[in-house]
Design a protein around this nucleic acid. Structure first.
Length: 868
RNA sequence: GGGCAAUUAGCUCAGCUGGUUAGAGCGCUGCAUUCACAUUGCAGAGGUCGCAGGUUCGAUUCCUGCAUUGCCCACCA
């Protein structure tokens, strides 16, 4: 066997190993070896085709690959389905930004040319992203890769839309929506972000009352004053109508009493602007007030603004206030007012709420034949439908959000995305305020005839990604429509519901909730059984990584520098679900060191094998052997059981941590050292290594596969069998071995304190009746660098747990540290004695606890006696 | 305004259903270097577990309040 390099160089292995995995076909569940009865599936949350991957993706990929590889090793029919999201607004924005640099807009190109350009950009992004997914080691089934704009997924979208429309769950309506004047599109409620801002707050005289507002520019045609019914100040005004001198002359105003007006707020009286405020819109509906548009889709003032018409609303503000001042209608201006400005989550432009005719999904309407609303379906799915959310507390967040859910605006005025499958008949004359049924066609394909023109709008990107778990598996083709639960075939039957949905907590609402709604409605089953929400990756100071801060870490750079395995480990170990993770280079470097340690452990073991190839020990595993052998096998069993349990319970951090501890602190630090003096360990070492590599494989697939190959194995590590714990009872082994470890550590400690050169061998004497110790003196001699045999008087070491005494030829001066130890012990003994003298404790505490405390006291006393 | 989380060693974090002289990694200190690995080994120092009450024989762990930080939701009267 050729000599392995001293250090593991990931760059020399990773790409090649990934290729061999791919070529094996094992990423595809249909090609996995052996009988695999149980299915395990995860749909990859599709990355946006907006460019490249960041650490958030890297983190998600690590978690999912762990689960996928674990289940594949366990013998499940395992599918991890890759794909990407067209991410409508986000992607269109990127391309529009590029155009802007050339001084162009999408309108200069026209719909067709513009879309061609976006599609090209998306295709380019896909190539980059695919490569990055592979760099992370993701064992994705590329033969099943999907894209939200694929033929079948588009069919799924049209089918979904049509069915919802037929069920009366999709309607078109004129409502106040969130409008981004830059994107020129509507936004869903949850696509709006809030930014705290200091802005002047104005108090205006409006007829008999004073009203407060932060947005004078919307107030031109305010005609309705709302006061609280119980407000005595305005009691007499309620129901009255009168003329009021206002911005552009007198207006006729009326006063309505409604409890939404809060008496304590401002002056207690407000005027309403139905077209540009959600709250006011609702009031206007309630009292049947007219909807007058003051601001248009470009953010400019309309004709209703009179002399201000055509001006940008925000810029016109100063002029409007000035005019009111001249008219003596300004009571005061509060410059210190702080409020939340709503902005577009994509581009940061302030949102204009304005009335617009849009398509909505009705979440509070009963579904025909099912007697429940979409909202109720989605709530039930988590409450009693078998969806488990980890961490637990997000259940509450989920319900809170679901309960407050309003109808979902699904139409977007952008070009990139799924065109709304609605056609309008141009020949039928439109009746003014009424929709003529014959005028609209909703269906999978365009109706025949030139008079039919398709809706210009596209669908919210989350409408298509909401279908992700089943559209990617072949729906609607592989599900026959029926009154009951749809009959599934093929992949859909095998892999839906998917096993786990793993993603970051910030898209619980955007995406997870919508998948639940869509799946419960279309598939009549949950989309996934478990939702595992991982944390956000932050920088060392706990700040979000962002381009503007320049504190981002590029996963690819980290992979180049430390290897994909190190990056994966650094994001898994030490992370708690739902609690943000701070990541920095030193951390990744630390796991690079570990990967190298694993490499060298293997290097040592493989070297042993080649040295003694022809005289392998006959001893079979688990029976007989030295104390150290039995100890390490018992520890191995324990770590197999623990790792299995941890992964099954989604405790990935704990799984990694415990494996790390076993590998470094038990196997490398103790057993491998012992292997240097106890002979004939090749067989047992190899057996341990094989199992260890399988256990580590889900976490760090590259290095484990690389070592596996160096072992001369013919089949890939990724399809071996997950080990099971044997549970042989090794009572006493652990205790005995621990005692020997303690003796060794105590001697090393004494040597170190007295600055004995580690090279020097010290004479040493030991008296003990302990059989295990007597049988393993060679370990102590070797690992503590001592030689037994002579009678030594001098420095004595005592251990409380065993009846034994060790003497070293060192001066016996009790160092200062020892005095502190004695003082500590004395304190401890005192507190134990007090506890055990306490009648309450003795009578109320469980007897096992009392016993344990008594034992601790005895041990402490013994130790003290020997220290003195 | 409503809600959720966090607060443990210099730093990043574990610590499950109350009983540990409170743990890990990094960093720090001392010693070692042709021995699988300096991306190393051995040994060590370092914490009154945010504050104040309460429950309990016993609280880092449970409860209440407070403080600080972060996040989510609502809201431009």
């Amino acid at each position: 066997m050729k000599e392995l390099p001293k250090a593991y160089e990931p760059q020399n292995y990773e790409d090649q190993i990934y290729r061999s995995w791919e070529e094996s076909g094992y990423f595809n569940p249909d090609k996995l070896p052996g009988k695999r009865a149980k299915a395990f599936s995860i749909a990859l949350p599709p990355p946006n085709v907006t460019g490249k991957l960041h650490l958030g993706h890297a983190s998600m990929l690590s978690y999912q690959d762990i689960m996928i590889r674990y289940h594949r090793l366990k013998g499940d029919k395992t599918l991890w389905l890759p794909g990407m999201d067209h991410a409508a607004i986000a992607t269109q924005n990127v391309v529009e930004k590029e155009l802007k640099k050339q001084g162009q807009t999408r309108h200069d190109l026209g719909r067709e040319k513009f879309l061609a350009q976006v599609n090209q950009f998306a295709e380019d992004s896909k190539v980059i992203i695919r490569n990055q997914l592979k760099k992370m080691g993701s064992s994705l089934d590329w033969s099943r890769e999907r894209f939200t704009l694929d033929e079948n997924l588009s069919l799924a979208v049209r089918t979904a839309f049509t069915k919802m429309y037929d069920d009366g769950l999709i309607y078109r309506g004129e409502r106040v929506v969130n409008w981004c004047t830059r994107c020129q599109s509507t936004l869903a409620d949850d696509e709006v972000e809030y930014k705290e801002e200091k802005a002047p707050f104005y108090y205006f005289k409006y007829g008999p009352v004073v009203i407060g507002t932060a947005r004078p520019e919307t107030k031109f045609s305010d005609k309705t004053i709302i006061v609280h019914p119980k407000d005595k100040r305005y009691k007499d005004l309620v129901g009255q109508e009168f003329a009021v001198e206002w911005i552009n002359g007198p207006v006729k105003a009326q006063v309505i009493a409604d409890p939404v007006a809060e008496m304590e707020l401002g002056t207690g009286a407000m005027t309403i602007t139905p077209a540009h405020s959600f709250l006011d819109f609702e009031l206007a509906q309630k009292y049947r007030l007219p909807l007058e548009k003051i601001i248009d889709q470009n953010g400019n003032l309309t004709q209703l603004a009179g002399e201000f018409a055509g001006q940008n609303a925000l810029q016109a503000r100063a002029g409007i206030v000035k005019k009111l001042q001249q008219k003596g209608l300004v009571e005061k201006i509060d410059e210190e007012y702080v409020h939340n400005l709503s902005v577009c989550y994509r581009c940061g432009t302030p949102i204009e709420p304005l009335p617009s005719k849009q398509w909505f999904v009705a979440v509070n309407k009963k579904i025909p034949g099912r007697g429940k609303t979409l909202k109720q379906l989605a709530i039930e799915a988590v409450k009693k439908g078998g969806i488990k959310i980890i961490p637990d507390r997000f259940n509450k967040t989920y319900f809170q959000w679901m309960n407050n859910l309003h109808d979902w605006c699904v139409s977007r005025q952008i070009w990139y995305g799924h065109r709304i499958p609605v056609w309008y008949n141009q020949k039928i004359k439109k009746t003014k305020n009424q929709e003529n049924k014959a005028e609209i066609y909703v269906g999978l394909e365009a109706p025949k005839g030139e008079e039919w023109k398709q809706d210009e709008d596209t669908l919210d990107t989350w409408f298509s990604s909401g279908l992700w778990t089943f559209s990617t598996l072949g729906w609607p083709a592989s599900a026959s429509a029926s009154a009951g639960k749809p009959a599934k075939t093929g992949d859909l039957k095998q892999f839906h519901p998917t096993s786990v949905l793993e993603t970051m907590y910030d898209i619980l609402f955007f995406w997870v909730a919508r998948m639940i709604i869509m799946s419960c409605y279309f598939m009549k089953e949950i989309p996934f059984k478990t939702v595992y929400l991982h944390a956000m990756v932050k920088d060392k100071e706990g700040r979000k990584m962002s381009k503007s801060l320049g504190n981002g870490i590029d996963p690819l750079a980290m992979i180049n520098k430390f290897g994909a395995d190190a990056l994966r480990l650094s994001m898994i170990i030490g992370a708690t679900p739902g609690t943000d993770l701070r990541l920095y280079e030193e951390k990744i470097a630390g796991y690079r060191n570990f990967v190298n340690k694993l490499w060298n452990i293997s290097r040592y073991i493989l070297n042993q094998k080649s040295k003694t190839k022809n005289k392998l020990a006959r001893r079979s595993l688990g029976v007989g052997g030295t104390l150290a052998d039995r100890w390490i096998l018992s520890e191995l069993d324990k770590i197999i059981a623990a790792t299995t349990k941890n992964i099954e319970e989604f405790k990935f951090s704990a799984a990694g941590e415990e494996l790390y501890e076993f590998t470094w602190n038990k196997l490398a630090d103790w057993y491998l050292e012992i292997a240097k003096i106890e002979e004939n360990k090749e067989e047992i070492l190899l057996a341990i290594l094989e199992k260890l590599l399988i256990l580590w494989h889900p976490f760090c697939p590259f290095v484990t596969e690389a070592i596996w190959r160096e072992m001369g194995k013919k089949t890939l590590l990724m399809v071996q069998s997950w080990p099971t714990a044997k549970k042989h009872k090794e009572r006493g082994v652990e205790k005995d071995f621990k005692l020997i470890q303690e003796i060794i550590t105590a001697i090393r400690n004494s040597r170190s304190e007295r600055k004995v050169n580690p090279k020097d061998t010290l004479d040493c004497s030991i008296t003990t009746a302990n059989k295990a110790v007597r049988a393993n003196l060679h370990l102590i001699e070797y690992l503590a660098k001592v030689k037994f045999g002579q009678n030594i008087s001098g420095h004595k070491i005592h251990l409380s747990k065993a009846d034994l005494a060790i003497a070293l030829p060192l001066n016996n001066n009790v160092a200062a540290g020892n005095e502190a130890d004695i003082a500590n012990l004395k304190n401890y003994i005192k507190s134990q004695e007090q506890k055990l003298a306490n009648q309450q404790f003795l009578s109320k505490a469980p007897s096992a606890v009392v016993k344990a405390e008594q034992e601790k006291l005895l041990q402490a006393k013994e130790r003290l006696g020997k220290l003195k």
